[in-house]
Design a protein around this nucleic acid. Structure first.
Lengths: 219, 219
DNA sequence: TAAATTCTGTTGAATTTTCAACAAAAGGAG
DNA sequence: CTCCTTTTGTTGAAAATTCAACAGAATTTA
């Protein structure tokens, strides 16, 4: 388990928790680590929402498919990020989304019950973890506000620019890589792929952006 | 303060807290109650996010305006609902949204710091409140997933139907009132008002829905 | 009660998006 | 290295949304 410590330390769930305590905690929480190949399902829509996941390696996407197979990408998660915690914490009986590995990935699973309820060992970690979960959920809430701000724009161009400007802000740089290919970006922005491609071409010709695959630069 | 107790008891922040303790707590938290007339601003975009609000009476809307004055309604809140808690808990320096009274409303304000940090009186409430905040944030998270599911639909009709079906689910009934007028519903669904009106007419003619002002019925 | 304001439904024109189809480029498998 | 699959950019036609403008209803104000 040691090899994951650098990732786990950066996980919001373990904020302000002493490195020395980490091993004890993991034992107390009864963690398990699963591996998933690209495109494989980590959590599937409709299944019980018992587990909190921590991305250890690779990356995953939170996906919602509607009646007619239209895919919408709700969010993506990278190493150290938590997944599924909102549903587990809220006590949702079944997941309203699927979570899919976007590349070969390792995920640590923790039964949410074990985090929220003190154990018979009298571990003093639980209060801190609940506090950390709360902070993390508040932060995710803000991410949703940002996503809504992006997708509330009415045109493909505005959505794309709002997304790119947010990425620039996050990375504090005018050039960056995004975690999506074209189809995925379209599914995240909730627009048509071909229309998105066309819009990217236009912006490039107009000298507003430069881009090469998933690398973008704002000019 | 007594007159608000019935509302406060239903507020997620005070879940599992004994009625007898409520007065002590409110004193400890240093609450204040403010009144707002219709259309007045409870929290304004850009201001510091120090306070958690509880809607005591009336109703409010969480609003995001973009560069060119397009209004987007992120969510609405009714008595017993919490507002602004995600920003306060996450420690955001300034609010990315405005919160506006939708009718004459009373709002109780609590400094978030006072909730999250134990006081010198050694109140034992804080841990429970942090747990409650966490649950509430998880629930809000799920509401955002629902909003994203609605607005990710590509057509006005699909957005409207997704919204109405969710309302029907929530009220466990095929008839209900919504907290929006036409323009507000359009701003919530992120579509054009006239197009929305036209779509409602169509659905009515097709016998799919019945509606009168903000009262809707699914057939 | 009357006047003024706000809200709602309708319309047609202009703009955009979606859809379907295709070819070139890139990437992966054997 | 070649073949096969996936990804990407382009196109034009069809469909849908947005926009602007208006009139009637409904609501509020004086």
């Amino acid at each position: 388990m040691k090899k994951y410590f650098n990732i786990l330390r950066k996980c919001p769930l373990f904020n302000d928790i002493d490195d020395n305590d980490l091993s004890t905690m993991l034992a107390c929480l009864g963690t398990k680590v699963l591996s998933f190949d690209k495109k494989y399902t980590v959590f599937s829509e409709g299944s019980p929402a018992k587990y909190v996941g921590i991305v250890l390696s690779g990356s995953v996407q939170v996906i919602k498919n509607d009646y007619y197979g239209n895919r919408s990408i709700v969010s993506s998660a990278e190493p150290s990020d938590l997944i599924g915690e909102a549903f587990a914490c809220a006590g949702t009986s079944s997941l309203p989304v699927s979570i899919i590995a976007n590349e070969p990935s390792e995920i640590m699973l923790i039964e949410c019950y074990r985090i929220l309820h003190s154990c018979s060992n009298g571990c003093h970690f639980h209060q801190q973890m609940i506090f950390n979960l709360m902070k993390n959920l508040a932060m995710k809430n803000i991410l949703f506000h940002q996503k809504i701000e992006i997708t509330s724009k009415r045109s493909t161009r505005e959505k794309l620019m709002a997304y790119l400007m947010l990425q620039a802000e996050k990375t504090k740089s005018n050039h960056f890589r995004i975690p999506f290919d074209r189809q995925e970006l379209a599914d995240y922005l909730e627009v048509d792929r071909s229309g998105l491609s066309a819009e990217i071409s236009k912006l490039r010709k107009e000298g507003v952006i430069e881009c090469e695959k998933n690398y973008f630069e704002l000019l």
